[in-house]
Each structure stands twice: as structure tokens, then as C-alpha cells.
Design a protein around this nucleic acid. Structure first.
Lengths: 337, 337
DNA sequence: GGTTAGCACTCGGCGCCGACGAGTGCTAAC
DNA sequence: GTTAGCACTCGTCGGCGCCGAGTGCTAACC
């Protein structure tokens, strides 16, 4: 792939992304000063098509990029610029009020991304915190319940209530003290796992309270793992000409209503760095016309959640990749700071 | 409006709802045995049009109901039947696992409604519980925070953490005891309001802890009141021929992404009983082609939340009204039981 | 007087056709 | 290797005529 071919491929992708129309040799010669005539461009286009980077929707139309073409573009040609300072400022301004509150912060970031890209935004909000355990406490709730309160370093609180048999207050205090000892400083996630497995509470004379708690934690984990992904900006996609066909849009939206599908999509995001999935590269049916640009974000050096932008295959990859990179950086920064 | 006209209006609405095509006199004579000839039906149709119950999209087409026609249908003609026993059973089965858990229960009800009606479902999940306060507790979290824990009769727990200045543990206990005295048995909602107003904590020597708590509660109330409405089944609407036009669908979906709009929509629902808003009866622009059937649901005799079905004006009113009525009844039953 | 058959008329939808134009590949000349 | 010229392809778009569903009117009927 020589330099001229690269320039031409880049021009084809840029133009097709901008217009959603197949691109012809004359257009290329006129709009992008490549310094060669349409005829020469035609020869190059024919080569690029033969090599699989371009496709022709029908015999007398211009070229459009193939998945392979987009892939090459993303890997070697897309300009992942720094954001305009105006945009940086705006991002900071949007995120600032939520500094420290994971959920709201990530939601705000999603809204920003939706507006800035005009595509659809996916995001996973961390269900179980990686934050470390600061305090475990048993709170008796008269007449017959006990509330287990877990407080994390970052201020998050998880509570779990269960029916209690006859349990003495001292037993509860002993248990709490032991649990504090055992759990202090561990990630909440691990604490909850341990409680769900019921291992931690065996020996404190709590009767069947231990079992009940384990059961409650199991249920809670299930529920939280189900409901941790959400979507915004779906109407944006309806602006894109590829979704003029209502049936396509419907298939897509229906799929996006299923948590399971969303999770699978976001699972494509790497824990760190920006990744791009293009068109048929993934086999999930309703997404064959889409691309996903996604990234994870870190807190305290550990991966916490993921965020992605889903748009038509004909996506402004460069811009979206910059935005995603910047947004995930900012999220990390706001949560660490 | 004599009986024959009523029967004809009913037939027009039923047929138009089923087919989405303007209905002509011959069709009416053939499909609904009205016992009169197409010519007579034509005369009646002309009358109904003159009275404003029907409209003609163009000169040589059949009739479609006007808003006034739908209104008459809903008020006097729609058959609000009991649900099929099969459907009742299914509803019970779907809701049963969530007995007692407000949020999940209502979500399950929404999914059921979406499937059963193939329209869009709106629902408000109660933000602040009407449940009564059972326990107030201050939990010191070393080194420098205090967690206020509110436990309700129904098992819900709300926690609020704030930075604490130097506060003695006895002061906290005295304050908690007094608050328990004062709040026990009051609806959580009122408790939170009192705390937000900062009245309750003035005199316990808690220093600026009282102010900090009040501020925290204010923030929380704001946030909760914003995020209490949600939507499901949007893709269903794309099946409806009236949303073949992507622009219409986009306008609608965009409006539905705004919490404020959702709240306004659901505010149309009465606290008890089923209500119907049709087409241009409401002036909010993107909904002119839609109708909303909605209802509140009660817990312990008090209104708790609302649920509604948004579909095209050409909606199966009878069926949807039955479903909404039944679902809201069941929700009430499951939460009270 | 209400009901109905007959009839002329209206009008949107659909398929056909031809013109147009964007774009291609090939060839031959530079 | 590059380019001008040219014949060819094929999808789009507007015009046109047919078809059929549906109406309103009139006159006959019960």
C-alpha cells in the first residue's frame, strides 16, 4: 500500500463519512487535491477494490469503504487529534459538579458524549465498588430484624437487611468486630463475595442469621450484575441515513433493550485504551451496520467501568476515538482526584 | 347520536385500529353485520363526519376517527373487558417473584405491559417511600464521618453520610433517641423533608453536623425527584405504521429521553382509576399523534406511583385500559399483601 | 321518509418508460 | 506511468396512464 493509495483511501473514507454517498473519481479529484487526474484515481480505486479495501454498491456507482477499508483507516489513517480547547473546557465543566460520585459522573460523561458525537452512548456503571471496605456494622432493627451496613473508603454505603432469630447484641458486636478485622481494607467486591459464600460468619453464634445473610447477598449480587449497563442518545442514531429504514432501527433498539446484549457489547471494550469494533467484525446480527468505539476507565489504577459510542459503520472514527480517550481520562482523573 | 350511529362509529374505530387504513362503507357492510347497505352507511358516515367524529384524509378515501371520535369511543363504546384468565395467570406469575420490592415489582409490571400491548410503557417508581419510619440511627465512621441510617417499616433503608466535626458519641446517641421519638411512625417522606429543612437537629450540640446533614438531604431530594421516571418498549412503537416516518419517531424518542417531559406525561395519570389522553388533547408537540392510557397505583390507600402506556392515537383502547387497570390493581395488591 | 341500487366522478397508488447523469473501464496518445 | 476521450452501465426521477376503492347524488322502492 503506497502513499498515494493511502491518501486516496483516506479521502474516500472521509468523504463517505461526511456525505453517506458513494464516492467517485471526479469528486475525489475535485475536493481533495491529490495532484492526479480522475482517470489515474480510477486506476487506483480499481486496485483498492481488488485488494478488498473498497466496494462498489453497483456497477456504475462510486466506491464505499469495506470493513477492511475502515479497519485500515482506523489503524493507520484516522487522525486522533487532541480535542479543541473549547471542547476540553466544556467537558471539564460538565463533569466537575459530580467529582467523586461515580454514578452521576459517568452519566454526565455519557450525556456529553451523546451531544458531542450525535451517536449512541453505552456505559457500564460499576455495580460493585472496587472501593475498599472501611467499616462493617450490625444494626439491630427492633423488633426482629438486623441490618448489615458496609461503608467503603469512598463514602459508598451498602446495606442488607434480614430477619433475625434470637440473637444477642453482644454476639452481633463480636461478629462485627471480627468482620472489621477481617475485611478492613479489602475491596467491597471481595467482602460481598465472601459474605455471599457464607464463609465469614460461621462461628459467631449468630444462629441462622449467617445463612440468611448469605442468601440475601447472593440475591443482591445477582440483581446488581443484571442492571449495570445503560444507554443514551438512541434518537441520535435515527438521524443517520442508514437508519432511514425503520426495520433496521427497530432491530437495533430492540437488541439494546436487553441487558445481556449490552453487556456483551461493552465487554468488547478493553480495560484501558480505546478499541474499535467495525461492522461484521462482530457476528451479533443487528449490529452488522454499526461500529463501536469503546474504552474502560480506571480508578486507582484498577479498571472500574466501560464506556462506548455506537454509531453507523460510517462513523467519524478519528473524532470519536479522541473523545472517548479524553472522556475516559477525565473520568479517571475526577474519581482519583 | 342514535344507536345505529354508535354502532357505525364503533365499527370504524375498531377497523381502523386493526388495519391502520381508512375505512369505507363497503368494508363496514361486509365485515360488521350492521344489517344495512353500504349506501345507508355512507349517509351515516357523512353525518358522523359533519358532527366531527370522523375525518376523510382525502376526497375519495374512507373515513378515519377524529380526536372527538376517539374520545366518544373511549368514553362510551370501548369494551373494557376482564382479562383473559390466561393473561391474569401470566400477570400474577410475572409479578409474584417481586412481591414487596417496589422497584423490581413495578419494572416487572412494565415489561409485562410492554409485551402484552406492544406499545411503549412509562412508569414512575416512587422516589421517596411512603413507608413509615421504624428506626433512626447515627453510625460513626472513623475517622471523621457520620452516617445517618433511616430504616422503614417495609425494610427500605436510606443512608446519608457527611463529614463530621468533633462530635461526641453521646451527643449522637441523644440525638438519635430524640429523632426516633419524633419520627417513629411518620412517613419517610416527611422525615426526609424535616431533615432537609434542618429543623429537627438544632438543639443536640452536634455543631455544624446538623447543617451538613440538612444540605446533604436537600441534594438527595433534588436528585431523586429528577430520576424517578423510566421508559420501556420504545422499539414496539417502531412497528406501528404511523412511525414509518423516521422523523416522527425521532422527535418522540428525543422527547422521551428528557426526564422532565416524562414527568409531565405521567402527571396526566390520575391517582386512582384509568385515564386516557388522546392526540391533540395535549399540546406537547411530539405527542400529537399519540395517546396515553395511564393510572396510578396505591399502597396502603395512598397513591405511590404511576404507570402508563403510550401508543399511536390508533390504539387498542379497550384492551389497554383493561390491562392498565388490572396491572395497577395487582401492583397495589402485591405491595399491600 | 328511510333505504337502496345504480352511476358518474375523484383521487391516490402503482407500474411503465424515457431522459438524465454520475460513474466506470478501456484504449490510445502523451 | 499518466491522462484525455469515449462508449457503456445503471440507478434516479419525473411524467403518464391505468386501476380500483370509495364517494355523493339521484331515482326508484318499500
Amino acid at each position: 500500500m503506497d502513499t498515494r493509495k493511502r491518501r486516496i483511501l483516506q479521502a474516500v473514507v472521509d468523504d463517505y463519512v461526511a456525505t453517506a454517498e458513494p464516492v467517485g473519481s471526479v469528486t475525489l479529484a475535485r475536493k481533495y487535491n491529490l495532484g492526479i487526474s480522475p482517470a489515474t484515481i480510477r486506476n487506483e480505486l480499481a486496485d483498492l477494490e481488488e485488494q478488498g479495501y473498497l466496494e462498489q454498491p453497483h456497477a456504475s456507482a462510486g466506491r464505499i469503504p469495506s470493513d477492511k477499508g475502515y479497519r485500515f483507516y482506523v489503524d493507520y489513517l484516522a487522525q486522533v487529534e487532541e480535542l479543541a480547547s473549547e471542547e476540553r473546557r466544556r467537558l471539564r465543566e460538565v463533569l466537575d459538579p459530580y467529582r467523586g460520585e461515580v454514578g452521576a459522573l459517568v452519566q454526565a460523561a455519557a450525556r456529553f458524549l451523546g451531544e458531542a458525537t450525535q451517536y449512541l452512548v453505552l456505559l457500564s456503571v460499576p455495580a460493585v465498588s472496587r472501593a475498599r471496605c472501611r467499616l462493617v456494622h450490625f444494626l439491630p432493627v427492633p423488633p426482629d430484624r438486623v441490618l448489615l451496613v458496609l461503608v467503603a473508603e469512598d463514602g459508598q454505603v451498602h446495606t442488607t437487611g434480614v430477619e433475625a432469630g434470637p440473637v444477642s447484641e453482644e454476639a452481633l458486636q463480636r461478629a462485627a468486630a471480627a468482620l472489621n478485622e477481617q475485611f478492613h481494607g479489602l475491596p467491597l467486591e471481595e467482602v460481598e463475595r465472601a459474605l455471599a459464600e457464607g464463609l465469614a460468619l460461621g462461628a459467631f453464634g449468630l444462629g441462622d442469621l449467617a445463612e440468611r445473610l448469605a442468601e440475601a447477598f447472593n440475591q443482591r449480587r445477582d440483581r446488581e450484575q443484571r442492571s449495570q449497563v445503560c444507554v443514551g442518545g438512541a434518537p441520535n442514531l435515527l438521524r443517520q441515513p442508514e437508519f432511514r429504514d425503520v426495520e433496521k432501527a427497530r432491530g437495533l433498539f430492540a437488541a439494546l433493550e436487553e441487558e445481556r446484549v449490552l453487556s456483551e457489547l461493552l465487554a468488547l471494550a478493553p480495560e484501558e485504551g480505546v478499541s474499535v469494533a467495525i461492522g461484521e467484525e462482530w457476528p451479533t446480527r443487528p449490529f452488522e451496520d454499526c461500529s463501536l468505539v469503546s474504552s474502560g476507565y480506571l480508578v486507582g489504577g484498577r479498571p472500574l467501568g466501560r464506556i462506548g459510542v455506537l454509531g453507523p459503520r460510517r462513523m467519524e472514527y478519528g473524532r470519536v476515538m479522541s473523545l472517548i480517550r479524553e472522556v475516559s481520562r477525565h473520568i479517571t482523573e475526577m474519581l482519583d482526584g
